[in-house]
């Protein structure tokens, strides 16, 4: 049950999609999002979907895993779809039934909106599926390096993020273990009303928090023992370096994004 959460899960691989510099991938996702919000016709949406399909094909990530990523936001997708479908005024009504009516613009908006959210999520998930959390934060830190001049603690934020990401699986495992242990003592998480259910969480949350604090404490000590003192003067073991493939990928990304914007100007 808890293990079904795929958020930020990484599927190791050796494809070009895996080998790209994390900064390239982050920038490509940003470009993709920009293009997605500029798209407003069937042609451009088709282009966006095609781009994603090609990337998925290159990365060899299974479609199943990608679709599974949509599950947690299924509700939002359906909700947005319905809202757009029924409550968009338009010139021509296709269906009128009581206070419910579907206009042609409504149908159009609903389809595009749903498509947009789905592509957005799948695109981002594709990045997290092909990039390990560590290199992702590494890339983010390098990209935001300029902000250090504005006294934004970029390194510390990146470190916090990578630690948090590193501990998500550990915490999930721990939660599973504690739940099993309490179930073995007859704890019941399924039945009862809302208040009883909330109360049933106490035997899980208390041990979980205690162990999380203990872990944080131990980690801080271990880091200090190895002379960690923040980002000042800290060098990298793996220095990120753009390769030929990164330039090609970025050029393609910019080209497509620009293409979509141009098409928009032509009303497509």
């Amino acid at each position: 049950m808890l293990k079904d959460i795929t958020l930020g899960q990484y599927f190791p691989g050796t494809t070009v999609a895996h080998k790209l510099d994390p900064r390239t991938k982050i920038l490509l996702v940003v470009l993709y999002i920009v293009a997605l919000f500029c798209a407003k016709s069937l042609v451009t949406y088709g282009l966006m979907a095609l781009c994603l399909a090609v990337c998925v094909y290159i990365s060899k990530v299974s479609i199943k895993a990608l679709v599974r990523g949509l599950k947690p936001v299924l509700f939002i997708i359906i909700f947005t779809g319905i809202l757009n479908l029924f409550f968009t005024p338009g010139d021509r009504y296709l269906v009128e039934w009581g206070f419910l009516h579907i206009s042609d613009t409504g149908l159009r908006n609903a389809v595009f909106m749903v498509l947009r959210i789905m592509l957005l999520i799948m695109g981002t998930f594709l990045m997290t599926y092909t990039t390990s959390p560590i290199s992702l934060t590494d890339g983010l830190e390098r990209l935001l390096n300029g902000l250090k001049k504005l006294h934004v603690p970029v390194h510390e934020l990146a470190m916090m993020m990578s630690i948090a990401l590193r501990f998500i699986p550990t915490l999930i495992e721990e939660t599973d273990k504690i739940m099993s242990a309490q179930k073995a003592r007859g704890a019941d998480f399924e039945s009862g009303n809302l208040i009883q259910k909330a109360k049933a969480l106490i035997p899980i949350l208390v041990p979980l928090f205690i162990s999380a604090f203990r872990r944080a404490d131990e980690l801080a000590t271990a880091m200090e023992c190895r002379c960690y003192h923040g980002g000042e003067g800290r060098t990298k073991l793996h220095v990120l370096q753009y390769q030929r493939r990164d330039y090609i990928a970025l050029a393609l990304g910019v080209l497509i994004c620009a293409g979509v914007i141009v098409l928009r100007q032509f009303g497509l």
């Binding site: 273990k177 504690i178 242990a181 179930k183 073995a184 003592r185 007859g186 106490i202 035997p203 041990p207």
Partner: peptide
């Protein structure tokens, strides 16, 4: 069944609350 077959986990001290 869980009441009839009692299971003490590895490192059970972490389940105290």
């Amino acid at each position: 069944v869980r009441f009839r077959v009692g299971l003490v986990f590895q490192y059970p001290e972490y389940q105290l609350f």
